[in-house]
Design a protein around this nucleic acid. Structure first.
Length: 483
RNA sequence: GGCGCUAUCGUCUAACGGUUAGGACGGAGCCCUCUCAAGGCUUAAAUACGGGUUCGAUUCCCGUUAGCGCUACCA
């Protein structure tokens, strides 16, 4: 059984790059009828926060993907320690009693090459090591990288191909800290073995860590290593990595949720960053995503999330979202729109929202646009607008007034359905000797308060006779008297 | 500094030795049209640089440059 895992550490909000890693794992699992495991890698107790954990779950839940099993690394430290001690017992690790380096310690750098180990510790006799440990002297447990007996470490990456690194370039990394807690490397590998993870799919920032992990897996006596697949990173337009401090809220998935992205659209967008399906497919429902996903389609270079200070949302993400919005059944869209309408302060009920939804469905790009696209349906009084807006193309105040008065007469008796309104108002225009557009525009401005709005007849239909007549009356009064 | 990874339009990407270097977003223009959208059509826009290998390189190799990652008792 194929098993994959997503292992975030709760030291920050759910990062958009992390979300994509989760999505790729999920898609891979679903495509192959495997299991998706969520493992909270909370081994750094100092930096973990509940707020971060909440934000991660909020983000993951919003994506509407789900997982099959859930674990917390912090509840499994006994296992991690046992595994580390096994490695020590096999002579593949050693105790390093060197005191922790201070802030200004730079002995590990500028030595020309890389730091590999602290002098005197690697070769310490077992007796002395055991004695000092028994005496309570603190130590870190380090992996004894076999630089003498082995030239290099190799593994096959499903995305980046065959990888190798000289053991001479791998330092004796820590397995256990001096406080007895496992490091990320130790905990992660022990858990991957214990949870029988078959494929490790994660960010490319772990590509070089993988050599260390291979050493740990081997030391743990694993018969078969998991397969590895590293994903290109998501970066900012300036080429730097996405950071909250530098790039603000665009790096958090909750920002997209709050802006009114559909989770399916957002997932679709993230999939297109670093992966491309066959046949140039772009707008894809979830089932198609699952059906098409494969690691062969993952590419190797970092992808830029395209945002600016003025426009914090990637234009392609916005377009994809609009595509998904248009593809949604009106009832579902309406239900998703409702909370955003209420958040905008509208007294919105389900029935009204459902009538408005088809009018704005292909005019909004994010759910939050409901606030600016449908406002005039909800307000009692239109916000004030420039009465000059009421004057039609190639017309004047006189024309505006006669059009509006004509409309008032027609709408007083017309049936409020699309076709009747269409016929009646066009006839009205003909009577007046004006073009249809010259007739419709003043009415539109009168009932919507602006020139840009959904089609007029449906708008009137939803607005109803009373409100329409009232607003047209107000518009006529707004018009300057003298010509 | 050391080691590793990467390099196609502004952005996301296709082309796994032979194409007029394709698609999408965004831009520009036209059409449709009661405004706005949506839709349709058209258009500008790319193989980082230098060497090889080859009849032929976006594609393979080397170098340069640039970016990113790792180099913690963070993950």
């Amino acid at each position: 059984m194929l098993r994959v895992r997503f292992a975030p550490s709760p030291t920050g909000y759910l990062h958009i790059g992390s979300a994509r890693t989760f999505i790729f794992n999920w898609l891979f699992a679903r495509h192959n009828q495997g299991a998706m495991i969520l493992r909270i890698d909370d081994t750094d107790v100092q930096r973990n926060t509940q707020a971060s954990l909440d934000s991660i779950f909020d983000g993951l839940n919003w994506l509407e993907l789900g997982w099959d099993e859930l674990y917390h690394a912090s509840e499994r430290v006994d296992l991690h320690r046992r595994r580390a001690e096994e490695i020590l017992d096999r002579g593949l690790a050693y105790r390093d009693f060197t005191p922790a380096a201070g802030e200004d310690d730079d002995t590990k750098e500028r030595a020309g090459g890389a730091w590999l180990f602290n002098p005197g510790m690697r070769e310490m006799s077992k007796e002395e090591s055991d004695r000092r440990a028994a005496a309570g002297e603190p130590f870190v447990l380090r992996f004894r990288v076999p630089r003498d007996s082995r030239a290099e470490v190799n593994f096959e990456d499903l995305v980046y191909g065959s990888q190798s690194k000289a053991t001479a370039d791998i330092e004796d990394f820590a397995l256990l800290r001096s406080n007895g807690l496992p490091t990320y490397h130790m905990a992660s590998c022990a858990d991957d073995v214990d949870l029988r993870i078959s494929h490790i799919i994660r960010g490319q920032d772990h590509l070089t860590n993988t050599f260390k992990h291979v050493l740990i897996f081997e030391a743990l006596g694993g018969a078969n290593l998991p397969q590895f697949a590293h994903l290109p990173l998501l970066i900012a337009p300036d080429g730097s990595k996405l950071s909250k401090r530098k790039h603000g809220p665009v790096v958090s998935v909750l920002t997209y949720r709050d802006a009114g992205f559909l989770p399916h659209a957002y997932v679709n967008f993230l999939c297109l960053l670093g992966w491309s399906p066959k046949e140039d497919r772009e707008v894809m429902p979830r089932q198609e995503l699952i059906g098409r996903f494969s690691l062969e389609g993952v590419n190797r270079s970092n992808a830029t999330v395209n945002f600016t200070d003025e426009d914090p949302l990637d234009p392609k993400a916005v377009w994809l979202n609009a595509e998904h919005i248009r593809a949604l059944p009106a009832a579902e869209l309406s239900a998703r729109l409702l909370p955003f309408a209420r958040a905008a302060g509208f007294q919105a009920d389900e029935a009204t929202m459902l009538r408005i939804t088809p009018l704005i469905q292909e005019r909004i790009r994010v759910l939050r646009d409901v606030a600016t696209a449908a406002d005039f349906f909800f307000v009692d009084r239109l916000p004030s607008y420039d009465s000059a807006e009421l004057i039609p193309q190639k017309g004047d105040i006189v024309m505006a007034r006669s059009v509006l008065e004509q409309a008032r007469g027609i709408l007083a008796t017309a049936e409020f359905s699309h076709d009747s309104l269409d016929a009646a108002l066009r006839a009205g225009a003909q009577t007046l000797g004006v073009k249809p557009g010259q007739m419709f525009q003043p009415i539109r401005v009168a009932v919507c308060g602006r020139k840009v709005a959904p089609p007029l007849f449906q708008t009137l239909e939803v607005l109803g006779r009373e409100k329409s007549l009232q607003r047209i009356g107000q518009a006529i009064e707004k018009l300057p008297k003298a010509a």
